[in-house]
Amino acid sequence: MTERGWSYADLERESGGALSRGRWQQLGSADAQNKFPHPESLRVIAQVLEIDVTSVVLAAARAVGLPVPAQAGDFADQLPAGTERLSVPMRDAILGVVRAAVAGSSAGPVVREIDGVTLEWPKESAPSRQRPDGPIDYEEADL
């Protein structure tokens, strides 16, 4: 809501009146809920907030006190609304960056697969650490 500048009345309007302002406010409170929302309400919430229904179901389960472990960690929860609309090539590129960052944060060897060939080398001798000219200036590099 904060990110979009929406009020509970805006959410009611965006849901076409399927959920009242009061129901949105109840769902948005930090208070534990007494009962699990109706499946149609879960679908409407996901549609209005532009998030996947699985995230809504898991959040609802936590709100009624069910012990639901985090599925992908806090990082996944920080992705902005609309991420699911990214093209497959864009998702692959972003995942590649994340995988490289995760691999770079480990103390183990660096492992890369290129065209079905697996390459592995000690982190300290990784190609990215062997630039004799220093770090790349991305403003001047041909990308």
Score class of each variant (00 low, 15 high):
G73S: 03
P39S: 11
D31A: 15
Q78I: 05
Q78N: 10
A70E: 05
A100C: 06
A76M: 06
Q33E: 12
G73F: 02
A93Q: 09
A103N: 01
V53F: 07
G22W: 12
F75R: 04
R85C: 05
E50S: 13
R85S: 09
Q33V: 11
Q47A: 15
L42T: 12
L11E: 08
P80K: 01
L27C: 07
A32M: 14
G96Y: 03
G16R: 03
W6R: 13
A76H: 09
Q26L: 12
A93K: 09
L86Y: 04
I45P: 00
D31N: 14
P69S: 00
G96N: 08
S7N: 13
E84K: 05
G104Y: 03
A72P: 05
L119C: 10
V57M: 10
G73I: 01
G22F: 09
V102G: 02
A70D: 04
L66Q: 04
R112Y: 00
Q25K: 09
D92S: 03
G82I: 07
D10H: 08
H38G: 14
A30Y: 14
Q33A: 15
W24M: 04
A100M: 04
P67K: 04
S15T: 10
E12Y: 13
G17Q: 04
E120Y: 10
I94Q: 05
S20W: 03
